[in-house]
Amino acid sequence: MKHFILVAVLVAILTVLVGFGLDTIGLMPELASLQGVFIDQLFRMHIWVISFLFALIIGFMLYSIIVFRRKEGEQGDGDHFEGHAGLEIAWTIVPLGIVMYFAFLGSTALAETRRADPNAYNITVTGQQWSWRFDYTDYGFSSDELRLPADRQTLLMLTSTDVIHSFWVPEFRVKQDALPGEGMERELRITPTELGRYKVRCAELCGTQHAYMLADVFVVEPEEFDEWAEEQLKGVSDDPVERGEVWFGQFGCTACHSIDGSDKVGPTWMGLYGKEEILADGATLIVDDAYLFESIREPQAKIVEGFETVIMPPTGASMSDQQIQDVIEFIKSLGE
């Protein structure tokens, strides 16, 4: 009996040490969404159960190691007992109860993260190698940054033009993959609660530049959001070159094309217009409007030599003719 009391004390001390220790250092990053509240609560409970179970087994083990080790000059074997059915049943039933309870908590927390607000407004999020695009479908403009009004639910519809990406803002906690293909849109609900600047971090390995597939997120006051939306709506600019530059950022071309001649995954746009291009099949041509148009609309039609292994995404298919024309003007402005 003495042994059990001592172990109980040891386990209690260990639990408190581990549990409070973890609580104090703080395990999670800043919390900035309503959905995350339920997740953090549940995770905190998990951590306490983990602390207790870890302490329980390690406590018994440490105690046995110290007290029941073979002492100098001791002979013979340990006590002979082969088991105890009652104990075995107990430590089958009790953990069963615990995990079922946690699964139940898990499903209610999941339901909370998915609770739909009928006033939620919609944003379509498109992932492509290696950038994000946000279409504010309720307003009719697009952006390469995500700006959200605080304390209002947003319904994100996630899709991808090429491979699987995953939308994750650690401060919002929730995460959802963006899948390519028709009918594969997936939804994610976020109600930001803290003003500030965060980042979308693509959480699914999506090729070479996966590490850098980030986008800015701003949570702002609703009034500020309305102002910004209005500004976006006013149209970008009268100058096709300036518009082209905006599309260049918004449609994610920046991920692969440089405009200063430096090396990226795709050919640089500097000095592209009018130059002689060598294709993968050996043919050559002079870069003109028609070629550029085709290269954007149907990237696979002609492949540039040296870039056979990277596939340019078919983003151009969802760009308007005018937008493509703007991009071409922009390319022209980068020198011949």
């Binding site: 999670m28 995350g36 339920f38 997740i39 549940l42 995770f43 998990h46 159960v49 983990i50 179970l53 870890f54 995990v99 946690f102 699964a103 908590l105 898990g106 499903s107 927390a109 999941l110 909370e112 993260t113 995953s166 994750w168 650690p170 906690r173 929730v174 995460k175 959802q176 959480a203 699914e204």
Partner: peptide, 18 residues
């Protein structure tokens, strides 16, 4: 012991792929 938090869907939404 770090398995059950992954197995709980709600918490896994944060933990997955980290």
């Amino acid at each position: 012991l770090t398995g059950p938090p992954n197995a709980t869907v709600a918490t896994d939404l944060h933990l997955h792929d980290t």
